[in-house]
Design a protein around this nucleic acid. Structure first.
Lengths: 219, 219, 219, 219
DNA sequence: GATGAATGAGACTTCATTCAT
DNA sequence: TATGAATGAAGTCTCATTCAT
């Protein structure tokens, strides 16, 4: 989507400095593959079908990814990198802690809500993975967890939150987000769900209701 | 035709001829298969290896399960049935609601903690499944959710809990449990984690701390 | 069919002198198997289904036939023996040659018309056969051919038939019978077809029409 | 997308790039498979052996035929098409009817005599076939039968043949041809057999001997 | 003798990967 | 660089046959 904005050089007819051309093709493959992997078991997604969906020949896939596994892995790490950059961009140390936790929740929910395919993809392949995949996932999880965990630790230290186990609270928040995204359905707007989940989680952290009920609803 | 007349002696002399034998063998196969499926992708678990692990010939697998998928499904439904029966057995309507919620959390955590293989198995294959699997999973999820949801609804009605979205709260609880079981690690005993998660969730539900902080956390 | 008439001892409950009991069971298996083999490719007829259709256990089949092939062969030789005995019984050296040829045709047509299952069975497995089957078939074919051939030779010698190649004429007659039985359909009664085929063939043998047109229609 | 723009050079430089290559390979597979199927039961002909005999890898077979059955079917329809085209080419409406019937017999005999493998193949799998095969065979049979049948009908109408049942006569001719080809053996040259069979059949049709006895048998 | 659960060889078919063009 | 025909390893499943009961 945004991809088309960064490499505008793509659309002119010349044999582009192929660096950009290639990047675009790589993206096309990844996107097509993600769409397939998101909704079908790994073994049902054949390289033939990926090639077809991406509009390239089968052999071409191997110019960009050394194997089916590498392609799968490429989807994973690409998207997790994006996720991480999104987190980073959203973090604002100048905001009050409560607000920063709430925002972290919102950003996470929004990120995956806007990437439903990747959400499905990610949600399924969590544990049971080959080594390489596992490393990527663990790392990403740690990065994400650390993000929340340090916020909570800071909150506890500064007395904004009750003295809970920060790791436990983090996992509870992340697990809640996952469940809601996957199973809540469309009966309420995602923004609303996200906000109410924030309320719930902040309450569980013992944050003073007065401190956060108001700011939530008014600018 | 005559068969039914001549061999009634067949079902007599033996302790419980094949019925019991067969049930035991079915279990053996399911257990062996679960152990494999829990830690490897579906496609890496071959029927040969399942047979080997179960100590039967490959053909025998097909006497008990019509296909690899059916075997996979058998694991799923068997264990989910057990899960449901466990829930049912643990429910005690005479207890106060707060206690019942806490107990539901504890029972869930314990159930899966004692069945780590099935936890892995279950945690991985959630979305992205063929129709039959999906139906089983959805159903199980609904049963579990309804269990929590009605407790929370009762709590809200009776004023024990704050007026939260019960479905949202339920998914938060279930998602939290899942995350903790899968990622918390062994740094703290499961019982402890389970109790602290109960505290957190009850707090998020707005339950009066006095009612539950003492029995749990008393310094 | 007639089988139930010869071993009437079968129907009393006692553990019969098993010779008769066994023969009956063997027949039951052969009949059931023929019905299956007649309408499906060899590989689609499983021993399980034969057992089911015959009303015996799979293991029992192996008490009567040493293998699937042996069962198949049993059908073949059993029926071909019957065919041969039928020929023999029908032959009457006192009749005029023309009548004997005509009768041989009629008997052949009737025999297979009354055994449509075996007709299908026999019609399909002719060439492409394993050694054992081939031997049986060749032998039967020779026996049948010789029967016709010697009639024709006699006819030629006695001047009733034109000097044709007897082997060629025989094969033509047999091939014609086969074709008619398999493909003519039910638009005309078999007896009629059989008679008209006789006319045709006798004509081709150069038999004087006057000699045979009359006897056909009147006793 | 771009594919269709960039590689037009692909279809240029080569002599007839894969289209011709592929047709040849398809033929090679069909020929090799026919040779096997002609002399062995379906289940004894493995795809492995077909591949070996055709000099291609097993997977390649499936690029040309979607299944073993489809391969089998391919042999059938390919050859039957050729047979039909051969008939068509041989028909000459300007010849006298007697000559046309004789020629039809000769052409049929020659066609199969020159394709002994296909003769065996075809002769065996007549009835007892799956739906698709059956349809092909029925159709071919009808086409062939119609060919003979209309000749005979014309002959009857014009008084050249006696008033026989044309369908019956046709089946007799076809069945005779089949029998002779399969069982006559090599004791006489095929052309001779074919001619004598023509005499026989024409006589059976009541054709005036004077019209055909001379050119054929004249001492 | 009769049974039918168990066996395991072997078949068909798929599909990731390669490589000549 | 891109293609897609060819490859062949490997998997699921079937089924004739055996044998303990």
């Amino acid at each position: 989507m945004k991809k088309h904005l960064s490499p505008p050089t793509l659309t002119n007819g010349r044999p582009l400095p192929n660096n950009s051309d290639q990047r675009a093709k790589r993206e096309r493959i990844l996107t097509a593959a993600l769409k397939l992997f998101a909704h079908e078991p790994y073994q049902d997604v054949t390289m033939d079908r990926v090639a077809g969906a991406a509009g390239v020949a089968k052999g071409t896939l191997y110019l960009y990814f050394s194997s089916k596994d590498a392609l799968y892995l490429g989807i994973l790490s690409d998207n997790l990198d994006t996720a991480y950059r999104t987190y980073q961009a959203s973090a604002d140390p100048r905001l009050p802690l409560i607000e920063r936790v709430r925002r972290a929740i919102t950003v996470t929910v929004e990120f995956y809500d806007q990437r439903r395919d990747f959400l499905q993809f990610y949600a399924t392949e969590e544990p049971r993975l080959a080594d390489a995949r596992n490393r990527i996932m663990e790392e990403a999880r740690e990065r994400g967890s650390n993000f929340f965990e340090s916020l909570i630790q800071d909150g506890i230290r500064s007395g904004v939150f009750a003295p809970v186990d920060p790791r436990l609270a983090t996992l509870a928040i992340q697990g809640s987000i996952r469940s809601l995204l996957l199973y809540y359905g469309a009966s309420r707007p995602v923004a609303e769900i996200s906000r109410e989940l924030g309320d719930l989680m902040l309450k569980s952290l013992g944050a003073n209701p007065a401190q956060f009920f108001k700011p939530t609803h008014q600018p």
